[in-house]
Structures are given as structure tokens and as C-alpha cells.
Deep mutational scan, measured.
Amino acid sequence: DYEVGESVTVMDGPFATLPATISEVNAEQQKLKVLVSIFGRETPVELTFGQVSKI
């Protein structure tokens, strides 16, 4: 299970290999909103559970 505030690594898509912090969890739809730090700015990205891995 994923929790808000948890650190994960993006495994898929254009942000693969980047660390991210979970900002929202939708367990019903198996989706997460995460904040990816790009060029010093936090960018919100919506991903599925399968696109991230716990650190």
C-alpha cells in the first residue's frame, strides 16, 4: 500500500528513474499523484501503482 508523503521511484514513462513523493492516493482506481522534482521545481504527475516502486 502507498501512503501520502512516501518516497517512490518512477519506473515508467518520461520520468523513469526519478525520485518522487506521493501527494495523493486513489486506491480504487490504482492511481497516484506524485511530485517529481525537475530542474528544482516540483511537478505534479499522475501515475498508476505499476509505474512506481517503493524506495
Rank of each mutant, 00 (worst) to 15 (best):
D12C: 13
S7K: 15
Q29F: 11
Q51Y: 03
T17Q: 11
P14Y: 07
P44V: 15
V10T: 02
D1V: 13
Q30V: 04
E24N: 06
V45I: 14
E42W: 11
A27I: 13
M11C: 11
D12Y: 12
T43D: 07
V8H: 01
V8E: 00
T9Q: 11
S23M: 15
S53V: 11
I38C: 10
G13H: 04
T48A: 11
E28D: 12
K54M: 05
G50L: 12
V25K: 03
I55C: 10
V25W: 03
G5N: 05
L47D: 01
L35C: 09
Y2K: 01
K54A: 07
F15G: 02
T48G: 12
D12P: 01
S23H: 10
S53I: 11
L18W: 14
N26M: 11
E46C: 09
V25R: 02
E28V: 11
I38K: 06
E24D: 08
K54W: 04
V36G: 02
S53Q: 13
F49M: 07
P19I: 15
T21V: 15
E3H: 14
L47Q: 01
G40V: 03
M11Q: 07
T17Y: 13
P44L: 15
D1L: 14
K31P: 01
V4F: 05
E46W: 15
R41I: 15
R41M: 14
Q51D: 06
V52E: 01
P14Q: 08
D12K: 08
L47C: 05
G50A: 14
P19R: 13
A16D: 05
V8F: 01
Q29P: 03
F39R: 12
Q51S: 06
P44A: 15
R41P: 08
T9H: 08
V10P: 02
L35G: 03
T43K: 05
Q29W: 08
N26P: 01
P14W: 07
F39S: 13
K33G: 05
L47T: 03
V8Y: 02
G40N: 07
D12H: 11
F39L: 13
V34R: 00
L47I: 06
V45F: 07
T9I: 15
N26E: 05
S23T: 15
Y2E: 00
I38F: 10
L32C: 05
V34S: 01
L35W: 07
V10Y: 01
D12N: 09
V8W: 01
L32V: 10
I38P: 05
V45W: 06
V8S: 00
S7D: 08
L18E: 05
E24Y: 10
N26V: 07
I22M: 01
P44M: 15
L35P: 01
P14I: 10
F15V: 02
T48L: 11
A16W: 05
F15H: 06
S7P: 09
E42D: 11
V36N: 01
K31W: 11
T17N: 14
E24C: 09
K33M: 10
G50N: 12
V8T: 02
V10W: 02
P44Y: 15
E6Q: 12
V4G: 03
G13P: 03
A16F: 06
D1G: 14
L18T: 04
R41A: 12
I55P: 09
T43Y: 15
F39P: 08
Q51M: 07
M11N: 11
S37E: 13
D12V: 13
P44R: 10
I22P: 00
I22F: 00
E46D: 09
L35I: 15
G50D: 14
P44N: 13
R41K: 15
V45G: 03
E46K: 04
V4L: 07
Q30A: 08
S53A: 13
E3S: 12
V10R: 00
V10C: 04
V52H: 00
K33E: 05
G40Y: 04
T9N: 07
V34C: 09
Q29K: 11
T21G: 02
A20F: 03
G40M: 04
Q30W: 05
A16V: 08
E28W: 07
V4K: 06
E6A: 08
D12F: 13
D1W: 14
G13M: 02
L18H: 10
L35M: 11
E6W: 07
V45H: 05
P19E: 12
V34M: 03
V10K: 00
V4H: 04
I22Y: 00
V4A: 06
S53M: 10
Y2N: 02
Q30D: 06
V10S: 01
T48P: 06
S7V: 15
G5V: 01
V25S: 03
T43M: 13
D1M: 15
V25N: 02
Y2W: 13
T9C: 13
T17H: 13
V8A: 02
Y2A: 02
G40L: 04
V8N: 01
V52Y: 00
V25P: 01
T9S: 06
S23P: 01
Q30F: 07
V34N: 00
S23L: 15
L32Y: 04
V34F: 00
N26H: 11
K31C: 08
K33P: 01
V34Q: 00
N26A: 06
S53T: 11
K54D: 03
V34L: 07
T43V: 15
D1N: 13
V4Q: 05
T17G: 15
L32W: 00
A27C: 10
P44I: 15
A27L: 13
F49G: 02
K33I: 15
K31I: 12
P19D: 09
F39G: 15
S7C: 13
R41G: 12
N26D: 12
V52W: 00
G5R: 03
G5C: 06
Q51G: 05
I55E: 09
G50H: 10
Q30K: 14
Q30T: 06
I55L: 11
E24M: 09
V45S: 04
G13S: 03
P14S: 06
V52D: 01
E3K: 14
F15Q: 02
M11R: 09
V36Y: 00
L18I: 06
T9P: 01
G5P: 01
A16C: 08
P19G: 09
P14T: 07
E6P: 01
F49S: 03
E42R: 05
S37F: 09
V36Q: 01
S37C: 15
L47H: 01
V36W: 00
S7Y: 11
M11Y: 04
G40R: 02
S7Q: 14
E3Y: 14
L47E: 01
V36A: 02
K54R: 11
L47F: 06
I22G: 00
V8L: 04
K54F: 05
F15A: 03
E46R: 04
E28M: 11
Y2R: 02
N26I: 10
D1F: 14
P14E: 10
T21S: 06
G13E: 02
V52K: 00
G13K: 02
T9M: 15
V4W: 04
K33Q: 09
V36C: 04
P44F: 15
Q30L: 09
E3M: 13
G13T: 02
V45L: 13
T48W: 11
K54I: 05
A27K: 14
E3W: 14
F49K: 02
T43W: 15
A16E: 07
I55G: 10
N26S: 08
G13R: 01
S53R: 12
K31L: 13
V25Y: 04
I22Q: 01
I55F: 08
V36E: 02
L35Y: 08
F15S: 02
T9V: 15
P19F: 11
L32E: 01
E42I: 13
G40Q: 05
P19C: 14
L47V: 11
G40W: 04
V36K: 00
G40P: 05
I22A: 02
T9E: 07
F49L: 04
P44G: 09
S53D: 07
A20Q: 01
E3T: 13
L32S: 00
V34T: 03
R41S: 13
A20W: 01
E6R: 04
V52Q: 00
